[in-house]
Computed example of a mutant assay.
Amino acid sequence: MVVTLDGPAGVGKSTVAARAARETGFRYANSGSFYRAISRAVLDAGIDPTRQDLVLETARRCLFTLKGGDLLVDGRPARGLQNDLIDRWSPVHSGIPELRAIVNQNLREISLTGDLIVEGRDMGTVAFPDAELKFFLDASLEARAARRFSQGVSGLSREDLRRRIEERDKLDRDKPVGALARAADAIYLDTSVLTIEEVCAKVVQEIRKRKSTGSQYNELRTEKKP
């Protein structure tokens, strides 16, 4: 079973997805971490981050796997993905259509090996349009900036973070491929008026309900076999 969580930056997707995965026994994949890991690999190698051909070459060489709740790149945990430099280049790289195709293919291959909760911007619309359960998380710009500031991973002021998130929103919505969008069949949750615990409880409840319905359907199919 695949569960998708989409939404703009700072709405709590990563926290909710990780907690829901722990509570349901699903594996968890943060699609943004794939792009960030690629951007870091490019920067660490001293490659010009504006060279799309070299960025794509780097991405094709990366071997992505999941182990527990960790993303592994070439067998090593992907660490240090949250900093201002990666924040600058990851949105640019994730806007490359060929790169999105590479990441989405990796995610689809990972989904074939067991239940998966995956979060991002276009998981329910592009990567997994046939996912069994979809959510779209949203929040006000002010609430998202406050959350990012409280995380303490950026040296930017709250107002600068607000402007950067606003710029990121525009970039995500204007992408020619994989633009931020709410799937028509996604459950909408406004996290600016709900606590993380409340959002997670709603997500887990829907997953268990859908899993239970699926199990009952499979049992009925088995009983009807001649």
Rank of each mutant, 00 (worst) to 15 (best):
A179H: 11
S140H: 05
G68S: 12
Q205V: 04
V177Y: 09
R164A: 09
P91C: 14
D48L: 09
L141V: 15
G80E: 01
L116V: 15
P97E: 09
G46N: 11
D53F: 00
E57R: 12
I196D: 07
S39K: 01
E119T: 07
G75C: 11
R147H: 00
G25A: 11
V42I: 02
A101P: 00
A139F: 00
A127R: 01
D130N: 14
K225R: 07
V199P: 04
F34L: 15
R148E: 12
L71C: 07
R100L: 03
V42T: 02
T65K: 11
R22D: 12
A183P: 08
V126L: 13
P129W: 02
R88S: 08
E206D: 09
Y188P: 15
S14E: 01
G46I: 06
V92H: 02
A9H: 04
A181D: 08
G80Q: 07
R60D: 07
E166I: 04
D44L: 11
S14T: 15
S192C: 04
L189S: 01
D122Y: 04
D115W: 05
T24A: 06
Y28N: 07
E159T: 10
T65A: 15
A45K: 07
G46C: 05
F128A: 13
Y217R: 14
R163V: 08
I196F: 11
G25K: 13
V193L: 14
N30M: 07
A131G: 13
R61I: 10
R148I: 09
E166Q: 14
A127F: 05
C200S: 13
E98D: 14
I110Y: 03
D44C: 07
A20F: 01
S140L: 06
R36F: 04
Q52L: 03
I117M: 05
L137Q: 05
S14H: 07
A37S: 14
Q216W: 01
P49Q: 10
I96W: 06
L85P: 00
D185V: 12
K13T: 03
I47H: 00
R108T: 00
Y28L: 12
Y28H: 15
K175V: 11
D185R: 14
K67N: 08
E198A: 08
H93V: 03
S94F: 02
D84K: 10
D53H: 05
A18R: 15
T191F: 00
G68N: 12
L112V: 06
L171T: 12
E223N: 08
L189D: 01
P91E: 06
L180E: 04
D6P: 03
P77N: 10
R51H: 07
D172Y: 03
L54S: 10
R121G: 02
A183C: 12
D138R: 01
L116D: 10
P129H: 06
G95Q: 08
L133F: 06
T113I: 02
I38H: 03
N83K: 00
S140K: 02
G32N: 03
R221A: 14
S192K: 09
V118A: 11
D172V: 09
S14M: 08
